[in-house]
Design a protein around this nucleic acid. Sequence first.
DNA 1: TTTGACTCCGTAGTCAGGTACGGAAGTAAG
DNA 2: CTTACTTCCGTACCTGACTACGGAGTCAAA
Lengths: 145, 145
Amino acid sequence: MPEATKSMTIGTLAKMADTHVETIRYYQRRGLVEVPDKPFGGIRRYDEKAVARLHFIRSAQWLGFSLEEVGELLKLEDGTHCDEARTLAEHKLGDVRSKIAGLQKMEATLDDLVGRCRCSRDPQRCPMIHSLYTDLSDAPENPDT
Amino acid sequence: MPEATKSMTIGTLAKMADTHVETIRYYQRRGLVEVPDKPFGGIRRYDEKAVARLHFIRSAQWLGFSLEEVGELLKLEDGTHCDEARTLAEHKLGDVRSKIAGLQKMEATLDDLVGRCRCSRDPQRCPMIHSLYTDLSDAPENPDT
DNA sequence: TTTGACTCCGTAGTCAGGTACGGAAGTAAG
DNA sequence: CTTACTTCCGTACCTGACTACGGAGTCAAA
């Protein structure tokens, strides 16, 4: 582990994590990112852990977790609420698995669609798209909750 | 195909699609759901196709597509822009596939977590959660766009 | 030691995706 | 024909996740 980038300012941190200062502050307000102590009347500094945390938040979000859920996932980190953590992780696992299942269904449908759609010269022959409806509408019995 | 439920009112449609009247109207405003002609001074009626469309919208949304994207997917339906449609579907497919990959990574991590987290009596022993960071933070190079 | 960029912090605005409200008009049951 | 329930349509409001703004303080290079 390189100790190179220790003590970044929030601006540098933002660049490192490919996000914006205001977004980081927003996460801090929401308790997702720690607000480091600031040296008397000085400026707060951040390290690589903050970068990693921001990456994690962005990844989890991209995968469809809300910031609230991300917060829960992040609680698993401290290792102090092991039982809770396991329960939470099990829940998330269920979540993740049904998302995967749903996406795989969509993958199959889209793949099928792309496969059939070899009708470059005859638009009339491209009606299989209708399967988008039927294939998917019976997919998730009970989306989310 | 049963022709049973022809000519539902918007309220019935909402129930059938397990959604709300106002949501349907919102989709109509966004052009995702057709507004049928109304008989002079009467009330608009909807059929099974509308139900299917609403199911589709909800499924696609649940899978992480925005209403704007859902709109694009729905354009595939008329079969008149076959090339465009295929391109669009290919894009979505790429999207879907990387989401699946990301979620599978998360699944593995969570599964591992749940497996290791057999430390009901010793919280200190639960530090593997850190893998959430490292496993995921190098996952999607370029989330969304 | 001044200047320009950056930080801090609070508050306000934005955008997506709904959700709620309210009055007028349609409709169905008794 | 009245009463109760819907529909219609417009506008306003709400939540989540940012994004922008402004004034005061900090810091580092010239």
